[in-house]
């Protein structure tokens, strides 16, 4: 194994683990969590996931945008696996047509 690559992987692993415990380590130093911080934490999952997904609505193309809009509506009713299957079929079909 290449020593430089190994070093990068090792430091990359440490950096990644630090991000994974960092927020918790900092917060656990406080005995009580103020309501504003509570509200911030409550918003984290939707905020981060929306930030990951949003560019796919805009920059990928028409087939992808349409599929995501339909999938967002379907997600109100349909569980995860069927949603994946329907969304996958739809994007494949639209990519052929559009």
């Amino acid at each position: 194994m290449d020593p430089t690559t190994l070093t990068i992987i090792a430091f990359g692993a440490v950096a990644t683990y630090l991000t994974r415990i960092g927020g918790h380590v900092v917060l656990s130093r406080f005995s009580s969590i103020p309501p504003r911080v509570e509200a911030a934490l409550e918003a984290v999952p939707a905020a981060v996931l929306a930030a990951i997904v949003a560019p796919y609505f805009v920059y990928e193309g028409l087939a992808e945008s349409l599929t995501l809009v339909v999938a967002a509506l379907l997600a109100l009713r349909v569980p995860a696996i069927p949603l994946l299957v329907i969304g996958w079929a739809m994007v494949m079909a639209l990519r052929q047509v559009l």
Partner: peptide, 24 residues
């Protein structure tokens, strides 16, 4: 396209939370 689809499903799953729409 599976990962963005899956993440989108998760985003929608949190719609019951306070201030979901403005946050998203």
């Amino acid at each position: 396209f599976l990962l963005p689809l899956y993440f989108l499903g998760l985003v929608m799953g949190f719609r019951g939370r306070a201030m979901w729409l403005p946050v998203v």
